[in-house]
Structures are given as structure tokens and as C-alpha cells.
Design a protein around this nucleic acid. Structure first.
Lengths: 292, 292
DNA sequence: TTTCCTGCATAAATTTTCCTCAGCCTCCCT
DNA sequence: AGGGAGGCTGAGGAAAATTTATGCAGGAAA
């Protein structure tokens, strides 16, 4: 192979943009550099090749025949490479995460900014679905869902244990509390899952007669129930992980004298093995470790 | 158009070469840089894109699936751009010059190194033909030929006037000179063109009877005739421009008492308007000016 | 096994390249 | 005529590429 003259492909790209836009200034804007930089790049390319791609009017440039020919030859190639690299980048740095609505709204989304700081390149698309137990998560790179205690969780990594305790609005707590320990019977219980499964398990665990509970409204997501709870409609058996903000700010109080108990786990599954997915899962793990 | 991540196309080229050769060292050699430079470029590209193109063994690299895919996508595009630029460069910086054998051998080729110094990028291909009066010079960027005085020279630029005078080997000059002025009749005349046109014109111009001349051998080019002349076979009516070296070194002497006279002109014609051609013609002009 | 050699990765230093800035010019449009 | 827009250019500083030096691991040779 002969000694060949290797032009700067970056300069060729600059040329292509100038050729397309017909202006150094516009090309500079597109590239995020000044027109002077473009002028220099172009001049260097022309000098190296020993050709003139542009006819220089005094404050305008226009393609010469040679320039047009070269542009028509190289522009598709440049475009192909850029699209190719771009697709690669997106595939690798854009992940979709599927999570239940409540977890997404109350934990994932509020935490996501810390992930962005950690991995600024990775863009996360959050997909929510309110249905708890969707077995197959379609075309998501990461799925997060809730598992009741004892439920089969083959292939799912532990994200966090779900510890629940009754929470209630401070207003309601103050109203019901007349110098004595408040009783669960004094506060309407809000349902947030089908069949009232969580309250039943709670009664069972702590030996409380289910009849003591007075059920008020029902909601299809924890998030909705918690909104109702904040509004003073009653108490919710709330996962600690979903109420960090409210208990911290005092918008919700833990019903005194009640220990958290484990009703299940949040678990995630990788459906792809890209680096971004690994980073995201690792980040979730550290987030959870920091919560403990 | 969205904010897009512009990878360095030069880095992509480096990647492509590494992918093709399968070795950083080999790629470095091909690019004329060290393997360290290649390693850096590659790493930067992978980091920017957030992907791994190569599996790193400890002293070996091999393409990952993603790397192979990317290579197959971009390699043709890279190749296209390089070939395109290369062709452009050659078209623009490689010129072919057609000249008669004698002028090429005795003036153009000896002078060409000065042109190389002036325009190192331009490569000149010299094409010679012994036939004097070829009307059309096929696919040459510059044609140079001789025009007899009075010959139609439309479209041909003047390169140099052709001044001729009889020259002879000093050996022959010394042999014939016995204390008196040497006469043209004493030296055999060598013919170097069809019909002995030059000697006839010379006789006519200076009023010398053609019968005084004793013709010896004949040659089809000035160059051959001059070789014979140097060898002492006789005198040649030689263009000054073709005998600079010999008269300077003393290998040939001008026959005493004879003035140069103009028999025609050397002229050139541009058959293409590339920059290299302009540079070459300008250089020829200055060369000729310097000779005067 | 031990030793050497080759190939790659990495950090620091250096060279090269690139970009910006400021000044200047010309055209074009009020 | 004046001012804005667009482009050119040179200087100087910022950023990127390259080299150099070193380390490390695998394979070949002793």
C-alpha cells in the first residue's frame, strides 16, 4: 500500500456542515464553535488537499464544482457514521425502567437526580404500571416489582425489604388523642390493595382482631392511599420506603406503639446486560444501603 | 434536531484500523503513531460512546459483537471518505507534462528538483515523445513543444525563444584549429531534424553557401545529436537552452565567431486549470527568466 | 521452571492542534 | 453614510493528541 495522505476526518465533517448550511457562522453554531474555528478548519483541509471547495465572496461562501462533488461523495458517509455511532450511544446509554406506580412516584423519581449526578450520560425512561403483579415486563431493561413474602422470585434480585407500619395524618392523630394512647380502632383504615391483604397480614402478625379495624375508602395504589392519608382520611399500612418524605416533613406520623413488619420485598430484574443497566442497578443498591 | 453527541471521526478511523488489523501496534504502525496513542484514542471513543468494542486479553485485543457490528457499519464509510479525499488530492497535485524528448531530458528533468523544492506536494509525471510536431497532446495537463518561426501557435504560451548556434566538442575544435580561425567547412555538420531544416535556415540567415557544409551523421533527436557532438563526431546547431550544462562544463564549445539566431520558440499549453498546473507553468516561466 | 519477549494499559509530560478573541475588511440594508 | 452581518487572519491560550516510561500478563525459549 502506498504512502497516503490522511486528511482529518473531523475537518471533513466540518466541511460537510459548511457545505450543507452554506455558511461558516451557521456551521459554527451547529458545531458549537465560533465561525473563526470553522474558517481555520476549512482552510487547513483545503490546504492539505490543495483544492478550493468554496468560492469566497467577501462575506459569503459558495461551493465550487469540486466542493459540490466532494460533498455529494462524503456527506452520506459522514451521516452514516454519525447515525451509527449515535444509535450505539442511545442503545447503550438509554435505559427503560419499569416500576409500579407508587414505587416510581415515591422513591425512584425523587431519587433519580442522584443517579443523574452519578452517571450523567445515562438517560432513564421510567415506565409505570399500577398493576402489581405483572409477570412479564415488556421491553424494559430493568423491571422492579413487589413480591409478597413467600412469593416465588426466581431471577429477581433483592432491592429492599418492605417494612410497613400504620401511618396517619398528624391532624387525625391529634384529634383522636385525648390524653391516652390512640387505638387503631379510633382511626379509619384505608385500603390500598386488593382484598385488603396487607391489613389482614398485619392483624394476623400482631394478633389484632380484624374486627377492630374500621375500613373506610379503598385505593388501587399505595400512592393514592397515601395522598388520602395525608389528607386526613385515615391510616395506611405504609411501606417505610414510600413515605420517607412525609414522615420526615411531619406530613405523616407513625401510629405510636406499632413496630414495622415485613410484608414482602421489592425486587428488580435485568432484562439487558448493558453497562448503563449495570450502573443503574448498582446505583439502586447503594441508594437502598444508604437508606438503612 | 436534537442535541447530538459528536464522536471524533478520527477516533472512529483509528477504531476501524484496529478492528481490521486486530492489533493496536499494527494500527499504530499504519497510522504512523505509537501503540499508546492508539490505545488512548480507542479508550476515549469507547468511553464517549459508553461501549466496549474490544475484549481485552492481556496482550491481545479482539472485537466484541458490538465492535464487529460497528466496524461493519462504519468501515465502508471511512474507506469511501478516504478514497474520495485521496482521489481529489491526486487529481489536484499530480500533473502530467508532455514534452519532446530532448527538452525533457536536457532542461525539464534537470530543473525539476527546483520545482519540487518550490511545490513539494506536486508530483510531476513526465511524458516524452520524440516526434516534434504532434498537434494534440493526449491526456496531459501541460504540453510543451517546439514551434518553428512563423508557425501558427494559437493558444500556446511562450516558454522560451530558441536561440541556436553551432557547437562542437573541444577536442574537435583543437584538432581543426592550426593558428587560424576555424571554418564551418572544417567540421562535419550533424543533422538532428528532418530535412536538415535548421542548417538550411542558418545558411540562409548568415549567407553561408550550403555547399560549404559537409554533412555527416543524422539523428532523430537533438539529444542524440548532442551526444554525438560531445563524442566529437561533428558540430550541431544547438539550442542554447539544451546545452547549458555542456557549455558550462566545457564538454561543448561554441564555434568561434558565430552569433546565436532564433529559429523558433518553445511553447506550452495548459490542458487543465488545476492549481498545480498553474504553479507548474508559473515555475517554468520563472526558470526561463532566470536563464536569461 | 525460569527467563525473555511481545503486546497492551496507564500516568505524566510534552507536543500539536484547535479554539477563541480581537481587529479588520467588505457587502448589504436601511 | 452608518451599522449590522459574515468572513478572514494572527496571536495566545486551552484542549487534545502523542510520546515516553513503566507495569503487567501471557506465551515462547532455555
Amino acid at each position: 500500500m502506498q504512502e497516503r495522505h490522511r486528511v482529518s476526518l473531523n475537518a471533513v465533517r466540518v466541511f460537510a456542515i459548511v457545505a450543507r448550511t452554506g455558511s461558516l457562522t451557521a456551521a459554527g453554531a451547529e458545531l458549537g464553535v465560533t465561525s473563526g474555528a470553522v474558517s481555520h478548519q476549512l482552510k487547513k483541509l483545503e490546504d492539505e488537499l490543495g483544492v478550493s471547495f468554496f468560492r469566497r465572496g467577501n462575506n459569503t461562501v459558495s461551493l465550487t464544482d469540486m466542493g459540490r462533488r466532494f460533498y455529494e461523495e462524503v456527506a452520506p458517509a459522514i451521516g452514516l457514521i454519525e447515525r451509527s455511532a449515535d444509535a450505539l450511544y442511545r442503545d447503550e446509554n438509554e435505559i427503560s425502567v419499569h416500576a409500579t406506580t407508587s414505587l416510581a412516584l415515591r422513591w425512584l423519581i425523587p431519587s433519580l437526580d442522584r443517579f443523574r449526578v452519578l452517571c450523567p450520560k445515562v438517560r432513564v425512561r421510567v415506565e409505570t404500571s399500577s398493576a402489581r403483579g405483572i409477570p412479564a415486563i415488556p421491553d424494559s431493561d430493568v423491571g422492579i416489582r413487589y413480591f409478597r413474602t413467600g412469593e416465588e422470585a426466581e431471577g429477581w434480585e433483592l432491592l429492599a425489604r418492605d417494612l410497613r407500619r400504620p401511618v396517619v395524618s398528624p391532624v387525625l392523630l391529634a384529634r383522636g388523642n385525648h390524653g391516652r394512647e390512640i387505638a387503631v380502632a379510633d382511626v379509619p383504615a384505608l385500603q390500598c390493595c386488593v382484598g385488603n391483604w396487607d391489613w389482614k397480614l398485619w392483624c394476623e402478625t400482631f394478633g389484632i382482631p380484624p374486627a377492630d379495624l374500621s375500613f373506610a375508602h379503598a385505593f388501587d395504589t399505595d400512592d393514592a392511599a397515601l395522598h388520602a392519608c395525608v389528607a386526613g382520611l385515615g391510616m395506611v399500612l405504609a411501606p417505610t420506603i414510600l413515605t420517607a418524605r412525609e414522615t420526615k416533613s411531619g406530613a405523616l406520623m407513625i401510629l405510636p406503639g406499632h413496630q414495622p413488619f415485613e410484608t414482602g420485598t421489592y425486587r428488580y430484574r435485568r432484562c439487558s446486560e448493558s453497562r448503563a443497566v449495570r450502573q443503574f442497578c448498582a446505583w439502586m443498591d447503594t441508594e437502598m444501603r444508604n437508606l438503612e
